[in-house]
């Protein structure tokens, strides 16, 4: 089974399960639309509070997007077949996360940049926040997938609780990035920093997750 077939399979499974990808996107839109209604509508207040709300909502939405990400394949026996096929389980985990990012993370990053335009009325900051959101959504997806794999048979809440502390450093960096965008200083340094985090975990975590899933199957 080649990589293209695996990717096609994951895309087919995700696209046909509308609530799995549309649900998180709709919730993100709902938060972004509802948040300006809950504060006093002066443009200063709105732009000050926008980034923290954006980052926290991305965190929550990615958490929702990964809920039960491996459970279905575990319960219906797909993972067992994959294991005996001698194909790389970590490659499958990598592709599954990538497909979730493509169908959920990328649209949310685009929407985040779009809502930034609405909140700050500034195209350059939207262009700056977009790559940061692309990276952050991928990192959050990987971390929550790790949590989900840990609590594969125990429900996703436990895994999320375990993983949540791992997301805090990323939120701190995103907070710094927020300041960097506002004052237009050190933006690329912080962008490279979160890209560095992503480049480490993007291959390491699928290998760890596949090992955890294998243990569950045994």
């Amino acid at each position: 089974m080649n990589i293209l077939l695996l990717l096609k399979n994951e895309a087919l499974k995700l696209v046909k399960k509308t609530r799995a990808w549309l649900g998180p996107i709709l919730i993100f839109i709902l938060i972004m639309v509802a948040f300006p209604l809950t504060i006093e509508l002066t443009s200063n207040n709105l732009s000050d509070a926008f980034y923290p709300v954006l980052f926290i909502s991305i965190l929550l939405v990615m958490m929702l997007a990964t809920e039960g990400i491996f459970l279905e394949d575990y319960e219906d026996g797909t993972l067992e077949l994959f294991l005996i096929s001698k194909k790389s389980l970590s490659q499958w985990v990598f592709l599954k996360i990538f497909m979730h990012w493509l169908l959920i993370g990328v649209p949310i990053s685009l929407l985040g940049a779009f809502f930034n335009l609405g909140a700050n009325n500034d195209l350059s900051s939207s262009l700056m926040i977009f790559p940061a959101l692309l990276i952050a959504t991928y990192i959050f997806l990987i971390l929550f997938c790790f949590g989900n794999s840990l609590s594969l048979t125990k429900g996703s809440a436990l895994g999320t609780l375990i993983t949540l502390p791992l997301t805090l450093p990323i939120l701190v960096i995103l907070g710094k990035l927020n300041t960097a965008i506002i004052f237009n200083i050190n933006y690329f340094e912080f962008l490279i920093l979160i890209f560095g985090v992503l480049s480490i975990i993007i291959f390491a975590f699928p290998a760890i997750i596949s090992r955890i899933i294998k243990t569950h199957l045994e």
């Binding site: 087919l12 219906d76 005996i84």
Partner: peptide, 23 residues
Amino acid sequence: SYLGHKNALKTYLSVRDNISLLG
């Protein structure tokens, strides 16, 4: 090839899609 108690079928997909998942 192995067939256990679990059928490894995606119940929300059509038979055609399930066959294509298997390549």
